[in-house]
Design a binder for these strands. Structure first.
Lengths: 225, 225
DNA sequence: ATAAATTAAATTGGATACAATATTTGGAGG
DNA sequence: CCTCCAAATATTGTATCCAATTTAATTTAT
C-alpha cells in the first residue's frame, strides 16, 4: 500500500465562491503586475497557490478569459493577455460609443440628489492619491450612467473601464493626466446639472477620446507589451 | 458486487473541443426552442445527454453565460435566460452605437471588390428562404464592418447580433420585416459605394433602430417570456 | 554537422468517485 | 394556517486516473 498521504486541504470550503475567489485573486495579480503579459498560467500551479483543485481554477480562467485578461488556447493553456496599442485604441473607441449612449439615456433620469452624490465622489477623487484614482474614476463614470436603467450596457462599460484601467496602470501615465481629468469631470457635471445633453455628450466624448489618444501615444512609443 | 458497469463512452475523443461541441448543441436547442426560457439546465443530465462528464458541461455553460443565453446562479445552477423586451431594446441601442462606429471605421477601407462580395450575399439573402435569413443577415452586416480591422468590436457586434437573432426567431416577425430589410440593405450598399459616410451611417442607424422598435412592440404586446 | 524524424516528458482535457455544502421540500407541531 | 426542522436533491469542490496533444530532447539520416 502506497498510502498516497492525501492532505485534507482547507477545513471550511465556502462553496459557490471558489472560482470567483480564485478569479479575483489572479485578476488582482495581473492588474497589480504580479503576473506580466505573456506569462503562462499553469492549472496545477494555480491550484496549489490558491489551495484549490483544478476545477475551480479552470472556471476562474474561463471567467478571466471573458474579461479579456487571459487568453486560453486549446491544449496549450492560459497566458496573460498582452497589452496591444491597437486594442487600447479599440477599447477607447467602444467606450466613447457606449458611454455617450449611456449618458444620453441617463441625463433625463438624473436627479439633483444623484448629481450631488457623484460630485462628492469627484471631491474624494481629487483629494485621494493616485492609488485610488482608477476605482474612484470608475465609480464616477458608472454613477453617471446608472440612472439609464440599462444593466447590460452598464456591465459592458464596466468591463471596458476595467481593461482600460489595466493599460493606465502599466503606463503609469496617471500623473500628467489626473489634473486634466478632474477639470473635465467638473465640466461634465456642470453640463449635466444644466441638463444640457449636447454639451455633456460632447464633453464626455472628448474626455474619453483624448484620454485614449494620449494613452495610445505613450504606449506606442514605449513599444508593445 | 455492484460492478458499476462503466461504459466506454465515445471511442474517439478529440480533446479541446468537447466544451465547444456541447455549448454549440445546447445553443442550438435554445435558439431552436428545444429548451425554453426559464428551463433549468442540470449538469448531470446534460452530461448524460451529450455523453460527457461534468467538466466540459460546466465549461459549456460558462461559455453560454457569456453569450447571454443562460444565467448561472451560485449554488442554484444554470437556467435559460428569459426574453425581456427591455433587454431587447438595450441590445438594439447597443447595436446602433457599435455598428455605426464599425461602419464609420470600415468605409474608408472598403474596396469595390468587397462591396461586390457583400452585394452577392445580399442577392442570396433575397433569394433564400426565411430559414437562412438570420445567418445571411449576420454575414451581410459583419462583412460590411470587417474592413474596420477592429476584432474586439466585431466580436461584440457578432454577439449582439446572435442575441437579437434569438428574439427574432421567437417573434417570427421576419415575414413582414424581410422586404423592408432588403430595401434598406440596398440603400446602405449604395451609400457605401458612393463613399457617402454620413448617408450610410444614417441609413444604418435607422435600419437597426427601426427594426428594434418593431420587435420591441411585437414582444411587448405578446407579453414577456 | 545539420536537418529531419522519433522518442520522452510535461501539460491540458476529460472521466469518475466521493465528500461537503446549499437549496428545496415535506411534514410535525404549535 | 403558519413556523420550524429534517430528509432529499443538486450543486460545488476534491482527489485521482487516463488519454491526447504539445513541447523538448534525443537519435538517426543525409
Amino acid at each position: 500500500m502506497t498510502g498516497k498521504g492525501r492532505k485534507p486541504k482547507r477545513a471550511a470550503q465556502r462553496t459557490g465562491a471558489e472560482a470567483d475567489r480564485i478569479a479575483r485573486a489572479i485578476r488582482e495579480e495581473i492588474l497589480g503586475g504580479g503576473y506580466g503579459a505573456g506569462d503562462v498560467l499553469r492549472q496545477e500551479r494555480l491550484a496549489e497557490v490558491y489551495d484549490a483543485s483544478r476545477m475551480p481554477v479552470r472556471d476562474a480562467l474561463r471567467m478571466l478569459e471573458n474579461q479579456g485578461l487571459v487568453v486560453v488556447e486549446p491544449n496549450r493553456g492560459a497566458v496573460v493577455a498582452g497589452l496591444d496599442p491597437q486594442e487600447l485604441r479599440e477599447i477607447y473607441e467602444m467606450r466613447v460609443a457606449l458611454e455617450t449612449l449611456a449618458l444620453r439615456l441617463a441625463i433625463p433620469e438624473l436627479t439633483n440628489r444623484q448629481l450631488d452624490e457623484i460630485a462628492a465622489v469627484q471631491d474624494r477623487a481629487e483629494a485621494a492619491g493616485l492609488a485610488e484614482f482608477g476605482s474612484l474614476n470608475r465609480v464616477f463614470h458608472l454613477g453617471l450612467y446608472a440612472p439609464s436603467g440599462r444593466p447590460r450596457l452598464l456591465a459592458q462599460i464596466a468591463l471596458l473601464n476595467d481593461i482600460a484601467d489595466r493599460y493606465l496602470r502599466v503606463t503609469a501615465a496617471q500623473l500628467d493626466y489626473a489634473g486634466r481629468s478632474h477639470r473635465e469631470h467638473r465640466r461634465l457635471l456642470d453640463a449635466c446639472r444644466r441638463r444640457d445633453t449636447d454639451a455633456a455628450l460632447a464633453c464626455l466624448h472628448d474626455h474619453i477620446a483624448d484620454a485614449g489618444r494620449s494613452l495610445f501615444e505613450v504606449l506606442s512609443r514605449r513599444g508593445a507589451l
